[in-house]
């Protein structure tokens, strides 16, 4: 599998693990499906309640002060001082971008890769095209970024953002197609997805 795609899937799964906590009380399930043309398939179904416990454990032991979930995880992640990007800066940038209307935010033309990030109406589109068939397409509703950046100081509302993502798209969190591989992550009430 394409490494970038796999990284994206794992990253999304980690974010989901965080985000799932907020909905744990709904007894929902997170589903991750990875299908490759050559026949490989990955099928993961995890109850949110289980992930909620995992997140508490991670909160207590794994992040070692780099990310702070607070004494009781409330969906907000506070970043430590070792990061180059200040969330407050992102918040200010987003406020300006938000008021600018439709725009092309990022355009990168590399020898073998192009990256486009742009806004059309209430959606941010992220498109990565590599040589060959590799394509990543991610549509992020505007409201998701709003919720992600709400909060104070170096704090991101990951849970709120993912919940918003699921709410605005019938539980769909992420879909990636790169020609050979498809990744789908979603939330619903069905144990088998």
């Amino acid at each position: 599998m394409n490494r970038k795609l796999l990284s994206l899937a794992i990253g999304a799964a980690m974010l989901l693990a965080v985000g799932a906590t907020a909905q744990a009380q709904d007894a929902g399930w997170i589903h991750i499906r990875v299908m490759e043309d050559e026949g490989t398939s990955v099928n993961v179904n995890l109850p949110m309640s289980l992930i909620s416990v995992a997140m508490e454990l991670a909160q207590k032991h794994a992040f070692d002060g780099d990310m702070d979930f607070g004494d009781e995880f409330d969906g907000h992640v506070r970043f430590g001082g070792r990061h180059d990007v200040e969330i407050d800066d992102l918040r200010r940038m987003w406020a300006e971008l938000r008021d600018a209307g439709d725009a092309d935010y990022v355009q990168v033309q590399g020898d073998d890769e192009t990256v486009n990030i742009y806004r059309r109406e209430d959606t941010v589109f992220i498109e990565v095209d590599e040589d060959g068939d590799d394509k990543v397409r991610l549509q992020v509703p505007f409201s998701v970024v709003d919720v992600l950046l709400e909060g104070e100081d170096n704090e991101l509302n990951l849970v709120g953002a993912l919940t918003e993502m699921a709410n605005t798209n019938n539980g769909e969190i992420l879909q990636v197609n790169d020609g050979d591989t498809t990744v789908r992550i979603w939330i619903d009430a069905n144990p088998q997805g």
């Binding site: 026949g39 490989t40 398939s41 990955v42 099928n43 993961v44 179904n45 995890l46 109850p47 309640s49 289980l50 416990v53 995992a54 508490e56 454990l57 207590k60 032991h61 144990p191 088998q192």
Partner: peptide, 27 residues
């Protein structure tokens, strides 16, 4: 410190349906 979490994992696993498929990988 970890064992209380294991206990909760067990509780949560006991609560899910008796035939739940959690992970399946075919390669």
């Amino acid at each position: 410190e970890y064992l209380p979490y294991l206990a909760r994992f067990v509780d949560e696993l006991r609560a899910i349906p008796a035939d739940a498929m959690l992970v399946e990988v075919i390669d």
